[in-house]
Nucleic acid binder design. Structure first.
Lengths: 216, 216
DNA sequence: AATTATTTGTGACTTTTGGCACAACAATAA
DNA sequence: TTATTGTTGTGCCAAAAGTCACAAATAATT
């Protein structure tokens, strides 16, 4: 974790965040500058640990973070955080002290804005743009989670896997190992390997080492 | 649906709601009186239908409502609404027009406070107590749903069933048919019947018609 | 009391998912 | 190039969950 390693570019990213969220209140802009800190993390850094107290709201400015729950050997993806997105669970913690029930790990090198929870709480009623931001974060996360939930309940793993690949594909290619996919979908590696083979022989995919190509 | 059938008792319930949520702003109290309506529903009434536009935030003042998603023959419980609780999904709709992805059915005769979505949105930044209410609703619902999600991912059905019975038990007794339990847990009747039999022979339950007694 | 409808039980079978063991293959480093 | 490590493939079996068919038990209705 390198605090203000790239001071100038961090500043640009914060300004970008302020613009994208339409934070027009000058006072809030100042408070953000003053009271938040920006940290830089490398791939695979763990930035939130299960059972740890949450003291700051984390907002991704650059990069990507994977938030997941673990249960013994198994894991399941809760959500990804992309730029300009706040970690909904750390937002929750702003309104009631609590420990994290998830882990968050850096998926792509990233820059993160950290805002101590007490400010987040205060700003929520003080600044309209901030209020919109937290409300939208909750709304979008809640809707997303409901979808995940009912897919998990109703869809067979094979379908969930295929849909997941399509959603993750960067121009038809997904660069992930079977083990990684297993952890995101809450199952085991062998199961994924077999389902992928089946999808391949159904002509839906091409399998290569560490890489899956989706066919149209 | 009987509008203001019991005008006086409705008024008392609204006041009770106002007190419990510590809505101290007189202006908001007036707005609530003026702009909301109170409706009364009987068991099994459907109050929200899948794919319908959501025009009001629904808050339960008395009774109980079951909110669930359906997928063909199957269903899965999303949450129950108890007194003083708002339907989180209709809260979501207050901040972005959308259709419902769930159904809501009255589980116990109930009285419901209906607030048109535009007011909910406005009040969110206008009144602090209202802001707290919506924030708490989101926070609690989100945490609850995350738990449901990871239970669904990690726990075998047998455990989810038993935990569900314990949580629903009214002094160790749950009055539900196997079919109803199946619909709440997202599975089929036969599966539930068999699991219940197994739990009974393990000495965890006593089964009677339409009734399950949990043993300590 | 007889009929009807609802609820529960269960056998027999299939599909889906999971676990273990080990082989084959690919990538990387010494 | 060889050794090491990580990744994928797969046989074999077990457990969990789902489906179909039908019987038995219980409750509700006439």
């Amino acid at each position: 974790m390198y605090l203000y390693e790239h001071f100038e570019s961090s500043k640009i990213m914060l300004n970008n965040f302020i613009n994208q969220l339409r934070i027009t209140e000058l006072e809030l802009q100042d408070e953000l500058q003053e009271k938040s800190s920006i940290t830089i993390h490398k791939k695979d850094d763990i930035i939130i640990k299960n059972n740890q107290y949450i003291k700051v709201l984390k907002i991704v400015l650059k990069g990507k973070v994977r938030v997941y729950q673990e249960n013994g050997e198994r894991e399941i993806l809760i959500y990804y955080l992309n730029p300009i997105e706040a970690c909904t669970l750390s937002l929750s913690a702003c309104f009631e002290d609590c420990k994290s029930t998830v882990n968050a790990v850096v998926e792509e090198d990233c820059t993160i804005l950290n805002i101590p929870v007490r400010f987040v709480r205060d700003w929520n009623f003080k600044y309209k743009s901030w209020n919109s931001f937290t409300t939208n974060t909750y709304r979008e996360s809640y809707n997303h989670l409901i979808n995940q939930y009912s897919n998990l309940a109703f869809q067979p793993l094979k379908d969930r896997l295929f849909d997941y690949l399509v959603s993750k594909a960067n121009d038809t290619v997904v660069k992930k190992t079977h083990q990684e996919l297993a952890k995101e979908l809450g199952t085991t590696r062998e199961v994924i390997s077999r389902l992928l083979k089946k999808l391949e022989s159904n002509g839906k995919l091409n399998l290569r080492q560490k890489e899956i190509q989706i066919l149209k």
